[in-house]
Amino acid sequence: MDLHTQYLGLTLASPLVPSASPLSRSLDSCRRLEDAGAGALILWSLFEETLTAETESSARFLSEQFTGFAEADSFLPDHRDFTPVLDLYLEHIAKLKASLGIPVIASLNGVTPGGWVRHAQALEQAGADALELNVYYVAADPDEDGAAVEERYLALLSALRHQVKLPINMKLSPAFSAVANMVRRLEAAGANGVALFNRFYQPDINLDSLRLRPVLNPSTSAESLLAMRWIALLHGRVGLSLGATGGVHGPEDALKLLLAGADVVHLCSLLLREGPRALGRVRAGIAEWMEAQGFETLADFRGRMSALAVPNPAEFERGNYVQVLDSFKSATGVMI
């Protein structure tokens, strides 16, 4: 089976692309992902906060341990000059490039166009094949309107675009009033692809301490439907690459997204739970389905169920809503 796909201007041997996760920290698991059939690899995200926090904490807790105690002039050993996070990340890119055949995509996570965007150049020089920009932004300020939020994304993208020639992928949240329009504007501003959609840590309340805590629950297959709808709506209407992320737990989920028009499908929760081999199972499942369906290449079926390709595209829009409501049945004993 030929699973080749075009993504961010790169030719990938497979549409299965592990998204940013701790799995990418180990050279070994990256190799195993490649062996299992990953088409490319997105590295764990380099956080804006990490870069600044590391500087501050290493200054305070290592370089400047001013105790003033007779019995202790320090608490933590600080006799090794260590490599800053950014340098480690760059070294890791170089190592991956040397040992993997698949493209390596670096990932930046931040919300302000601060100095960290400058680091993009270093990522390019280190050999990254593309950059993913994850704007992890919750528009919580009631005085900030939607236009301002969109401008934030565009400004960040422009800042990055000025730094590098690499393909740039924007990882978006679903919280836009006009997703399709936003994607088009990002394309105009220089984005080479979008990943739909980012998942946020949701704050939860600790009932013992009455404090908030961040929680990230693993995704479920149900979540992939959100991305599927938007990819189906965008496929063929925009020129940039479309990546589907969130809720891919088996070949069925992946196939649906590809049918909707995704160029690549990202995997995360599944791989974290079951390890790199799970990617191989998804790949095999896709191949098996293609064989059964008589498809030989990915291009044979990619986008076949997009809004442009189905007889009633409104089903991806409001009509879909009515159907779902109709199909909902309440649990026994619950009055609604």
């Binding site: 590391e54 500087t55 290493s58 000059d81």
Partner: peptide
């Protein structure tokens, strides 16, 4: 010497 490579900002 104190801050080594730990940060140009420092």
């Amino acid at each position: 010497k104190t801050y080594g490579r730990k940060g140009q900002g420092l």
